[in-house]
Design a protein around this nucleic acid. Structure first.
Length: 320
DNA sequence: ATCATTTACCGCCATG
DNA sequence: TTCATGGCGGTAAATG
């Protein structure tokens, strides 16, 4: 249960990464039906810290807040800045008692200092991935993903990926209806999977002379119930199968089939939360065809069975 | 759970 | 020369 959230700030904290965390967990939207959090910003001794932009930030708490938090968020700090031992120790204590920990960008280095990355899959900004692996040899650094959230230690790549990770945690806690509504409120894309590549060749849609796959993708999400094959998609995009596969990876960072499955799972989550349709009906509507197929992909990607997912999220949170 | 069959994907390389 | 293309074949994964 994520109720108490504590952000650990040190000198030279990066404002944008900090802002991402504040936006998701530190802004009161309970009036609109969103879940509320007890939000603490803490530093060693509660001392004022300087941001990388030069201005000063006065925390609400000292490090004792870490001992009572359900979620501890670590924004980015420049690598090489000495981490106060008491902050590292507090972080380790929190992780040991099972609190959820998340880092954005270079915040992962602080998690490394606390030994939280040992033996764990993790990530950071691609530019720092090599350094992170060198500094913490026991960490399994994956430089190619937006975020890793395998267990209660979660790490994310550069800045914007922090938004994806925060929304992922909201989704895990409160379901996709809440996460999607929150994303809409923040005007960010509703869901980017953690496995999605950090490098995408065309993250920004190009202009008319260089068409993108965007129209195809938009059409796909409205026709998830239909059958789609690699060849049929290539034909619709007026490309050879080989070129289509290449272009698809360049633009989305994944493969057509994998992307399609991801979208179908999102639709399933939605239908489980918002309707009373049976698993068979949902399988049919989402394009999985059979309940067995649905269960297979759903449990693999969500980590819960459709039934338990529905039990958890059905009617629990109302969103305006 | 396991298996046989089919499909998707990607490295390689020739082509324009 | 460099670059995108697209056909081929091996391998991994999905499917039923």
């Amino acid at each position: 249960m994520l109720q108490r959230v504590a952000v650990l700030v040190l000198d030279n904290v990066a404002p944008f990464e900090l802002g991402v965390i504040c936006e998701v967990f530190g802004t009161d939207r309970t009036a609109d039906g969103f879940p509320g959090y007890e939000f603490h910003v803490c530093s060693p001794g509660g001392a004022t810290v300087r941001t990388t932009s030069g201005w000063l930030l006065t925390p609400t708490d000292d490090l004792t807040a870490l001992d009572h938090a359900d979620l501890i968020a670590v924004p980015a700090h420049p690598i090489g800045c000495p981490a106060p031992p008491e902050a590292v120790a507090a972080l380790r204590r929190a992780a040991e008692r099972g609190a959820q920990v998340l880092s954005v960008c270079s915040g992962a280095f602080l998690l490394g200092e606390a030994g939280l990355l040992d033996g764990r899959r993790c990530t950071t900004h691609w530019k720092h991935a090599g350094e992170l692996a060198r500094r913490f040899p026991a960490a399994k650094v994956d430089p190619d993903v937006l975020y890793v959230a395998d267990d209660h230690i979660a790490t994310s790549a550069g800045t914007a990926a922090g938004i994806d990770l925060c929304l992922h945690l909201v989704r895990r806690e409160h379901g996709s209806a809440v996460a999607t509504a929150l994303a809409r409120r923040m005007v960010v894309p509703p869901h980017r999977d953690g496995g999605q590549a950090q490098y995408v060749e065309a993250p920004v849609p190009r202009t008319a002379d260089a068409p993108t796959l965007e129209p195809l993708l938009s059409w796909l999400v409205t026709t998830l119930d239909q059958e789609h094959t690699a060849d049929s998609l290539a034909a619709r995009a007026h490309m050879s199968p080989r070129t289509f596969a290449r272009r698809f990876r360049a633009e989305t960072g994944t493969t057509p089939h994998d992307w399609l499955t991801g979208q179908r799972v999102l639709l399933v989550r939605h239908l489980l939360e918002q309707t009373d349709l049976g698993v068979d009906a949902i399988a049919s509507r989402s394009g999985f065809g059979t309940a067995a197929m649905l269960r297979h992909h759903f449990t693999r990607r969500v980590g819960a069975t459709p039934q338990s997912y529905r039990m958890t999220f059905r009617d629990r949170d109302r969103v305006a």
